[in-house]
Simulated scan of single mutants.
Amino acid sequence: MKYLKHKIYGFIFNLFKVFPINKNRITFIVDSGESFKGNLDYIKNEFEKRGNFEFNFFYKDQFSINALKKLATSKYIFLNDNFFPVAFMNFKSETVVTQLWHAPGAFKKFGGSVSDEDAKEMLLKISKNTDYLIVSSKNIVDYYSEAFQISKDKIKPLGLPRADYYFENHNIDELKSKFCSKYGIDLEKKIILYAPTFRDEEKYNNVFNYLNLDEFNESLGDEYILALRLHPKIRNFYSGEISAQEKYVDCSDYKSEQELLLISDILITDYSSIMIEFALLNKPIVFFTYDFDSYLNEERGFYFDFKSTVPGPVVNDSSQLINVIVNSEFDESKMSDFVKTQFDAIDGEASKRVVDYLLKYGGQNE
């Protein structure tokens, strides 16, 4: 039977409805690797300022009766990704279920925007059991409504909690020194972060079939070091045998992606949502889209016209990429316009707004 595992999960959860809600209990639903945990950490920190709350991390890939009981008796429940059993969980009316979502803004189509009818029906069930979906701007509410199959009145454009990180006091020189020491990089070199996304079309995942490292380093190597951060699924499609000291550094294992954004001088990406956070820093972005036609026609597509909207030049091959960087062909006004479409407020107060809202309305739509 379709979704049987999730239905069983939901059935067991529902048995714990006999227990009362603990009004100070907050549970965060994550996987055992604690992926995409940034938003949750910032919400936890904000709640800690407000009172004596009990915090639990519910690991969705580890079955535990005790964890299910705590989940069922939580006043506030937060998700950062999809968790299908939610579709079959009967939450008490006092419980507030909030989806923070891990990806910033709106860029690539996802969820119900690209799913078949069966998947949309599941998303609809999940959304009926979700009180709020937090997004970064009123401009993207329609896209998220479609992606999550959720009513627009449940979508609250309060900001991206983890973006508060960029408004804290960081010693960027110290962060860069730590990074350079870890990878044996000359501290004087500027950092170009290359963060390509994963493609369903396998032949396009080996980025070094399209980026000529010899040409890149010959033109830029005296001033820059290329730092490569791969999507986990891409690692099977490239050879990591090239000497890091001579060609690039593979920083895919670097713990903090946000630190990498702070210390990088330029971002090279393609269709990755990493560019939305990087745009907040008002630093140059180049879009290296060697497979643009294939991605547009065969993969997910976008919520807006890619080439006219992204906050940086779009290039198709190594020569164009190198020339853009050498000649500093960047458009600051385009960056500013883009950020305004993705964020209503850029102030480091997103976590505060989310917690203020939830404490005020307590799960009841105003």
Rank of each mutant, 00 (worst) to 15 (best):
S318I: 09
R50G: 10
I242N: 10
V96E: 11
S328G: 10
F55Y: 14
K360S: 15
S252C: 02
S145H: 12
I346F: 08
I346A: 04
S137V: 11
E329R: 14
T341M: 15
Y9M: 04
F287P: 11
R229S: 09
V141E: 14
G184C: 03
F53S: 05
N52E: 15
D200G: 14
F91W: 14
Q245A: 08
A227E: 01
F338L: 13
D250I: 00
V286F: 11
L79D: 02
Q62Y: 09
E223G: 00
A279N: 15
Y166S: 02
R235D: 03
Q149G: 04
K154Q: 09
Y183D: 04
P20A: 15
K233W: 05
E94F: 04
E94R: 08
V207C: 01
F278M: 10
S243C: 13
K247V: 02
N39Y: 10
K69D: 01
M122N: 07
E298A: 00
G38C: 10
F330V: 03
F278Q: 09
Y194A: 06
I29H: 12
I263G: 01
F330G: 09
E329K: 14
Y271M: 11
R229P: 05
A227K: 00
G10I: 06
E201A: 00
S35N: 14
E188G: 12
F55H: 12
A163E: 01
F78S: 05
F91C: 04
N66Q: 14
A163K: 00
Q62M: 08
A103Q: 14
S351N: 01
G312Q: 06
E46A: 09
D153Y: 10
K182V: 08
